[in-house]
Amino acid sequence: MKNLYKLKYIFITILTVSLVSSCQTESSFEDELPSIANIAVSNADFSTLEAAAVAGGVAGVLSNSNPNDASGAYTVFAPTNDAFARLGLNENTLGVLQKTFLTNTLLYHVSNGNLAGNTISDGGTSTSALSLDRRFIERGEDTYINGSKILATDVTASNGTVHVIDKVMIASGADIVQTAIALQSANVFTSPELTYLVEAVVYAELAEALTASEGSPSFTVFAPTDQAFIDLGAALGLTFTSPADIRQLPKETVQQVLLNHVIANDGKFTSELSAGTVTPLGGDDLTLGAFTNGTLTVTGAGNGGEVANMGIPDVQTTNGIVHVIDRVLLPNL
């Protein structure tokens, strides 16, 4: 594992000082190690994770041995407070997430057994507690799990191993269309995010193409928020006050605009995307900005140089990766 940060050594120092000062024998050191849950409780950098574990009902699970693995261990990829803050979340704002989604999100960070840092390599995978695979990607000197950079590895707990990451990983367990509907219907956030996009997909008759089926392709999709569509309406001299207002535009135009957000490239996390142009299913090439702090900007040929920023990157679906953005990407209409 490359480029480990000092956070790892802070943990090791804390644990070592604690153990040495108590004059325990080597055989009892393991008994005195904190559980995974207690690591979160005892470190201020994981206060949001601690609150999420309590709210999501998994704190008790991560306090005990793993009954589903012979070693009794879990491996947890633990997002820092800063990782949650990237989604606008902290200890006091976790209530914007539906509990089921929060619980599943936490379990997506957990796997059975001890996965040592030196066994993590580019192209490898790890199966989460949701039975969904996560993949490891090396980019320069850094290693990522999906689109989240691994900041530190091998923090040892009494019931497993903790690796520290810089972004919360999200998986819907559904295809692209059902994922958008889940966001639209408040099954993820208490306030819907993608109501206009769902309406546009239905209106443009593209739902079937973006629904997973055996042998269907996997996509990278840039998904504009409700506000992005409202802003588009204003730019066109239209007033969008409800998703149905998207139907003021010709169906063919909406279809062309939506296809300008879809890339048939097997679904790429941000850690697998680079600056340059990519060709969507319809319209003109999109321009990706530099990979910076785990995200990229994206610009449509018809956006006059105005970039779209990723608000929620790297949402894993069963037929691709969705990146929620703050601007509609326009082709040259």
Rank of each mutant, 00 (worst) to 15 (best):
L183Y: 14
G267W: 05
T127V: 05
S21D: 15
V221H: 01
P192H: 01
A85E: 12
K251P: 02
D175M: 06
Y108R: 11
T239W: 08
E26Y: 15
Q98S: 09
E306F: 12
S47H: 09
I14Q: 15
G160I: 02
L183F: 15
E208T: 14
L330W: 02
I263G: 10
G276W: 05
T279P: 10
S131K: 11
N159L: 00
G123A: 01
G113E: 02
E208S: 13
Q178S: 14
R135W: 06
D245T: 07
P79I: 03
S35E: 03
I12W: 13
T287L: 10
G117S: 09
L107H: 01
R86C: 07
T241W: 09
E193H: 13
Q316H: 08
V164K: 00
A55T: 06
G294Q: 08
G124Y: 04
T292E: 13
T190D: 10
N38A: 15
D31N: 12
D69F: 02
G57N: 09
T220W: 02
I230R: 09
A200G: 04
S121Y: 09
P34T: 03
L151S: 03
V201D: 07
F229G: 00
T105D: 03
L281R: 04
I39R: 02
G60F: 05
L296S: 05
P79N: 04
P331N: 01
A73M: 11
F46T: 04
N112R: 07
V41H: 13
L329K: 03
Q316I: 08
L330V: 00
S21K: 15
